[in-house]
């Protein structure tokens, strides 16, 4: 028996909007730790890892570890039927081939339940070790989204370079080139407006902008984004989900032939 009650139901709606274009089908894993997911895109170049910790739910009952295969487009269709202020409860019985999403309006005057068919998904689970990164950049998530969108109108790939001068995003295409440099800036009114660069050594890596733009669909989940880079590892683009966990995107770099 599984019953997870999330008072801030809009979080789950935002999570689905952030991942449904990257991944079609995924297994949601439920354990005592929380509600999690790890899934790759169809070309096995990008990966999303989601964790919503059990403590972040108002009520969290998960009698045994359960993996529920869901079509994310269908799940998104159902969650779009929840109001932004609604409380969302996810329910499933052991051995059932369906999951139920229950939506309660804040004043309890409307209660809806949507039952969705589960599916069997053979998913490959990658072991992602903890790593020391050569550079970690924290910046406003809206700024990162703006840069990715702007550069993708010029070129297909972005070179992200971190030096002691700052973090540089560069692209080139048929019409020309573009460079955006963000310097460390901690003299801001609000902490989430800061750009903070922790660099062990300079690093420069090339990535497909199409995926970067897909990751920025998580922008509504967090005011800041953390980008971790090492020359021999996929980039990690992390959006913290307040009080609950995170959504992390991994993208393999492009390497010169």
């Amino acid at each position: 028996m599984l019953e997870l009650r999330l008072v801030q139901g809009s979080l789950l709606k935002k999570v689905l909007e952030a991942i449904k274009d990257l991944v079609n089908d995924a297994n949601f894993d439920c354990s005592a730790t929380g509600f999690s997911l790890q899934a790759m895109d169809s070309s096995h170049v990008a990966l999303v890892a989601l964790l919503l910790r059990s403590e972040g739910f108002e009520h969290y009952r998960c009698d045994r570890n359960l993996s529920m295969g869901m079509n994310l487009n269908n799940m998104s269709k159902m969650l779009k039927c929840a109001g932004n202020d609604d409380i969302i409860t996810i329910k499933a019985d052991d051995g059932s081939d369906t999951v139920t999403f229950m939506f309660e309006s804040p004043n309890q005057d409307k209660i809806a339940d949507f039952e969705m068919k589960l599916m069997d998904i053979d998913s490959e689970h990658l072991g992602i070790p903890e790593a020391e990164y050569q550079a970690i950049v924290r910046m406003p998530s809206s700024e990162f989204a703006r840069i990715c969108k702007d550069l993708s109108s010029i070129g297909d790939t972005v070179v992200i370079s971190v030096t002691k001068e700052g973090v540089k995003f560069s692209t080139r295409g048929d019409i020309g080139t573009a460079n955006v440099v963000c310097r460390q800036n901690t003299t801001v009114d609000k902490p989430e407006e800061a750009t903070v660069i922790e660099m062990q050594e300079p690093v420069s890596l090339t990535f497909a902008l199409r995926y970067m733009n897909s990751f920025t669909k998580a922008t509504p989940l967090s005011g800041t984004v953390t980008i971790s880079l090492s020359s021999d590892l996929p980039i990690v683009v992390e959006y913290k989900i307040a009080e609950m966990g995170y959504i992390r995107f991994y993208l393999a770099p492009k390497i010169e032939d």
């Binding site: 790759m40 990008a46 689970h125 990658l126 393999a252 390497i255």
Partner: peptide
């Protein structure tokens, strides 16, 4: 030209 690596080049399958 750049060659797009796959994640399995960096992470092992569990």
């Amino acid at each position: 030209t750049c060659n797009q690596k796959k994640l399995s080049a960096f992470f092992s399958l569990n």
